[in-house]
Amino acid sequence: MKRVIITAAAVALVGSLMLLAVSEWQNAFTLVSLVVLAGVLALSFLYFEASIIGTKQIALIATLSAFTAVSRIVFAPIPNVQPVTFLTALCGLALGPFPGFLVGCTSAFVSNIFLGQGPWTPWQMFSWGLIGLFCGLWGKNGKKPSPVAFGLACVGFSFLFGWIMNLWQAVAYLRPFTWLGFLLTYVTSLLFDLMHAAGSFLLAILFYEKFYKILHRYKRRMDVTYIDTSLPKEGL
């Protein structure tokens, strides 16, 4: 804990130093957002370490992340199918907010090892993690939305994903920064976002029921970990 506090203090110090030193707000925003982002990701992994998540759950999270990453890699040649959004959302829904966040985060990082790591990696990790988190909150208490509702949510998430990516892109690289330019960045990415959304919607409509059932079954197998040392009579 002491270490975490020291780290946080150091980060805050560096952050404020940057703000002081940097004159343009755009660069200040870029830097501070990077620091905050790194902090959020680091803290979530620290939380993971401190949580009660055991070997079995780790294996499940890793498996789903690998599955998601592989789907992303194998579908990369098909331009409008971006399965990560749908799969992360589904994992969040079936497994809960934190596992959902982890699946989104790690699959983004890992698939980028194959597709190209870059300044966008932390942002993708964050955005997809967020999608998993939201869906996890949505699916709390075992709620299961209808395929259309889930599909529409995936459409929303696709746009959310695109917008988070754009925001940083625009602020970090647009000179001079104008609201028009900001808007235009969104407009140009609209086509990609639309394709992303359409693909996610189709995936949701076509895959949702089947995949939810599979995940739900394993989730149950995962949860039941009671150890009973005496067998009830009727069990025999």
């Binding site: 992994f45 993971f48 690998a66 990453a69 592989v70």
Partner: peptide
């Protein structure tokens, strides 16, 4: 960070 490390190890193994 044993848990995170195992997660990534497994992912790399499985991909």
């Amino acid at each position: 960070l044993p848990k995170s490390t195992l997660t990534f190890l497994l992912i790399f193994r499985l991909i």
